[in-house]
Design a protein around this nucleic acid. Structure first.
Lengths: 185, 185
DNA sequence: AAGTGTGAATGCGTTCACAGCA
DNA sequence: TGCTGTGAACGCATTCACACTT
């Protein structure tokens, strides 16, 4: 794998934990990058995908909520490595406002709208309790954010032009517990 | 909604952000709980579902990795509320071993196997760097854990009898960035 | 010979639509 | 009449299989 100029769909599949047919189908959705009998040029494929997925650019992110989850997100290195930069963290609790999380100062949630207008972040991460989530989503959407990643364990609604994805850790655990209960069948 | 003895699939759908047909189909998978023309008895449905999903019981959980994500998980109230109890947190870094996270002492990763044999946790949460994840999964599986929730951004393999689910936050952000790049089409 | 790209077959979850029961 | 429970239709993603290219 090291030093290969070229890589086959089968090798990519093994790395990604999927099948060769899947890899070819997925790539063909974006275009035709491979050579028959040979495989894909590693460098050409890599740069094409970076381009297509928008990973070349830097994406500015604001985190709403500086509790346990918000703090973990602010300090997660995986984001920075992939071009996601945390430009703001917000909380409503005065005890948290003014503190710093990995170099970013926690700001008052009342500044949210004006900061979003100014910083124009591309993505907002919602890390507040379930009850507060919809209200805050509405606020960041109204201020201009078009992409939201929700960590609150509640379904949210957004206008059609806004992209919303949700991560629900408690639900994942419940699915596991269901699998455990029904293991012997 | 408050004080209702009974609730229709349409009302449940609105709360859950889905459709009435979806709700009826999902519930019918487990059995037949509703009354035609009336809806579902809130209390009966609630207790049946708790039973079926295994939410009545307590599930013991170990967290492998006491870094940023492991710490956030250890302190996440959402788990305790739903019957998931953190019975152990493990790390290999001596600087972290012996510290406490929300009342649970961080133990040496070398104790992992013997503790699992003793505590018999139902679920393991993997919160270590991608490179170490597969090794640790293999270790907890070998020690007897049957359900794993993975937070490391890498595909993992487990034996068939083990249930594995993965949460990949960086991937979620990349999907959002792709949506943003292709917004105007 | 090796391995892509893609129509066709398959599987699965979601939506539709309605018969039947309270 | 109201709303469930469920077969049938549908849509979409995954898998198969093979003609075609280098």
């Amino acid at each position: 794998m090291h030093g290969h100029q070229t890589i086959s769909s089968g090798e990519l599949a093994a790395q990604g934990g999927t099948t060769s047919a899947q890899v070819r189908k997925d790539l063909s959705f974006f275009g035709s990058f491979g050579k028959r009998g040979l495989g894909y040029s590693v460098s050409a494929l890599s740069s094409s995908l970076r381009e297509i997925l928008g990973l070349g650019r830097q994406w500015n992110v604001v985190i709403v909520g500086a509790g346990k989850i918000g703090a973990a997100l602010a300090q997660y290195e995986g984001f920075r490595d992939r071009g996601f930069k945390v430009v703001g963290v917000y909380d409503e609790d005065p005890a948290r406002v003014g503190g710093t999380l990995d170099g970013v100062v926690v700001r008052d949630q009342r500044e949210l709208e004006s900061d979003i207008m100014k910083l124009k972040p591309h993505i907002a991460l919602i890390a507040v309790p379930a009850e507060a989530a919809q209200t805050l989503v509405d606020r960041v959407v109204k201020a201009g954010v078009r992409a939201i990643l929700n960590f609150a364990p509640t379904p949210l609604t957004v206008p059609e032009k806004v992209t919303l994805r949700s991560v629900n850790m408690a639900l994942e655990l419940e699915i596991l517990s269901y699998a455990l209960v029904n293991a012997g069948e």
